[in-house]
Amino acid sequence: MVVGIVGYGTYIPKMRIKVEEIANVWGKDAARVSEGLGIKEKAVGAIDEDSATIAVEAARRAVKSAKISAKDINAIFVGSESKPYAVKPTATIVGAAINSSPHFTAADFEFACKAGTAAIQSCMGMASSNMIKYGLAIGADTAQGRPNDALEFSAGSGGAAFIIGKENLIAEIEGTYSFTTDTPDFWRRQHANYPKHGGRFTAEPAYFKHVMAGAKGMMERMGTSAKDYDYFVPHQPNGKFPVRVAKMLGFEHSKIVPGLITPFIGNTYSGSSIIGLSSVLDVAKPGERVLVVSYGSGAGSDAFSIKITKEISEKGRRQEVAVFDQIKEKHYVNYAVYAKHRRKLKED
């Protein structure tokens, strides 16, 4: 079974707010908060952006990088926890916006920050069994954080999209493995505006347990170890956890740097680990290997062992504007403007 990534695309909104600005509003020690989270600033979706518009922008870039016709996409899955509609799929909006044919199956996925990787796995299965020619898997969020909650300093906006198929691969997905348990570390109840979390409980029994198990399980099944990978991309709820988990698994720090994006755009929830993967695809060379481990609260991890093919070096197969170039294209806003754009101000 050879299946993998045919094309990829990322979209990061242009607005940024500094952690320092948020900390000042709430009377917190800005340097301490920024240092504690390992985040300098986060990306903020504009008032006319939501997870659907982000998904569409990422999808258009992915189709371009794949060099395929959108008419050959037979499955579209969008992972998000900030859907514009509670009931009405985002995937159909994406299909129409990339001018696909109506001959595709579609659904929206939700699994906290790992819905995008669950979408990739679904497309892998369908492509491998020849149910579809190409599948489009997206993770996109305008992540919510309650004012003055720890999440407000990290919850960012952004997304990534992947065309999954069996031909013209820029990266082969050698294997995937998931580790899932019922762990209530972070949740949002129906009709609630903001998610809640278990504070310190989100670390050891949640993030670290699942990412470690996902990474170890994947490497066991592949017969590999940390030294066999050139890049390691774990989920990035903040700038500290991924650095620590990489160390615990024996990855050198240099292997996580190319995919470590949360310090600059915040935690984009469903987009987080896969924007990291996109950033690696922007620079990886043929033959190099990548271990990606997502994490979704609730809780589970999807791990992928990925090998870059020589096709990535062909003209136009990497996305047009690299992740770190998108990170550089920014303009800063203050807390009041951020609150307006993220609709934190009550209008009635």
Binding site: D48, A52, T53, V56, E57, R60, P84
Partner: peptide, 17 residues
């Protein structure tokens, strides 16, 4: 060209993109 929201009804209405 970019893809954005154009208009939206009240919080429970439709969104035009």
């Amino acid at each position: 060209m970019m893809f954005r929201k154009i208009t939206e009804d009240d919080h429970d209405g439709t969104i035009a993109y």
